[in-house]
Computed example of a mutant assay.
Amino acid sequence: MANSLALLATFALLFITAIQAADPELISDFAVPEGADEGKVDGVFFTYTGLRGGAPSSTTGLGRKSVSIKEFPALNGQGVSLELLEFAPGSVNVPHTHPRGGEVLFVVEGALTVGTVDGNGKLYKNVVQKGDVFVFPKGLPHYQANFDKNNKAVVVSAFGSSNAGNVALPKNLFGSNIPDEVLGKAFKISPDTIQQLRNAQN
């Protein structure tokens, strides 16, 4: 009996955790911002124009524009979001994860080398070209790289969450306050190497 109760409690905890990890379920057709009059909502509310003009370039060569609940309140409760990414020749989107949503990447222009790593450390990579789609399962580390030296690549990524999150592994590990001793033991690297990696995140 005690084993059955323990098993039931474990399943209940897993179920509650899974529910809390997903976007909240709507109890109406859509959610309007607090204080807004739902009767005055029109098509403008469901339209986002922030991707006009593309994604701004950056010092890393990776331009990005996110369309999440923060930028587009109409996504609240819809369980979807997207991002426009423009890769200059030779640029990389560093290894990262999205803890709250899977990602589907669609190549609009150019080609990218993409890859994701499963829980056993196996790398799944491919070169995707204009018109191709690649999926990155929720929570798994992945990257994208434009190894073309002459042409840019443009992609649109859709996420299975209105705020999928983005954990950039280099910054979240070496730009954090994780003790050097922990990082040294985890990666089997010297204190000097840890400091170089920390400095690179600034």
Rank of each mutant, 00 (worst) to 15 (best):
Gly121Gln: 03
Val117Asn: 02
Gln129Glu: 13
Gly119Ile: 00
Val117Ser: 02
Phe106Ser: 11
Gly115Trp: 05
Leu75Glu: 09
Val67Gly: 03
Pro141Asn: 04
Leu112Thr: 09
Ser68Asp: 07
Gly119Tyr: 01
Ser91Cys: 13
Leu123Trp: 03
Val133Gly: 00
Asn126Cys: 00
Gly115Arg: 05
Leu84Glu: 11
Asn126Glu: 09
Val117Leu: 09
Gly139Lys: 08
Ser66Tyr: 04
Arg100Tyr: 05
Lys70Glu: 07
Asp148Met: 11
Ala74Met: 11
Lys122Leu: 14
Val155Glu: 04
Asp148Ala: 13
Pro56Gln: 07
Ser91Tyr: 11
Asp132His: 06
Lys125His: 08
Phe147Ala: 13
Gln144Ala: 15
Val80Gln: 10
Val117His: 02
Tyr143Glu: 01
Pro89Leu: 13
Asn120Asp: 14
Val156Gln: 02
Leu62Pro: 08
Asn126Met: 00
Gly139Ile: 04
Leu62Phe: 03
Asn93Leu: 09
Pro141His: 02
His142Phe: 07
Val135Arg: 12
Lys138Tyr: 03
Pro137Cys: 10
Phe87Asp: 02
Ala111Lys: 10
Ser91Val: 13
Phe87Met: 03
Ala153Met: 08
Lys152Met: 15
Val127His: 00
Leu75Gly: 06
Asn126His: 04
Glu103Val: 14
Leu82Trp: 13
Thr113Asn: 15
Asn151Asp: 13
Lys149Val: 14
Val154Leu: 15
Leu75Cys: 09
Glu83Ser: 14
Val154Pro: 10
Val114Lys: 03
Val128Gly: 03
Leu75Asp: 08
Lys138Val: 11
Tyr124Cys: 02
Lys152Ile: 14
Pro137Glu: 08
Ser81Trp: 04
Thr60Lys: 11
Thr60Met: 08
Arg100Gly: 00
Gly90Cys: 05
Lys152Pro: 13
Ala74Cys: 07
Pro99Leu: 04
Gly119Pro: 00
Asp148His: 09
Glu103Trp: 08
Ala153Val: 10
Gly90Leu: 06
Leu82Ala: 13
Val107Pro: 09
Thr97Gly: 04
Phe106Leu: 12
Gly61Pro: 05
Val135Tyr: 15
Val135Pro: 03
Pro137Trp: 06
Val117Trp: 01
Val117Pro: 02
Phe72Val: 02
Gly101Ala: 10
Gln129Ser: 13
Leu123Val: 12
Lys138His: 11
Lys149Phe: 09
Phe147Glu: 10
Val127Ser: 00
Glu83Asp: 05
Phe87Glu: 02
Pro137Met: 08
Thr59Tyr: 09
Arg64Pro: 00
Val117Lys: 02
Ala88Val: 10
Ala111Trp: 01
Leu75Val: 08
Pro141Leu: 03
Arg64Leu: 09
Asn120Gly: 11
Phe72Met: 07
Val135Ala: 15
Gly115Val: 07
Val156Asp: 01
Asp148Pro: 13
Pro95Lys: 00
Gln78Gly: 01
Asn146Trp: 04
Asp148Leu: 10
Phe72Arg: 04
Pro141Tyr: 01
His96Trp: 03
Ser58Val: 06
Ala145Asn: 00
Asp132Ser: 09
Glu83Met: 12
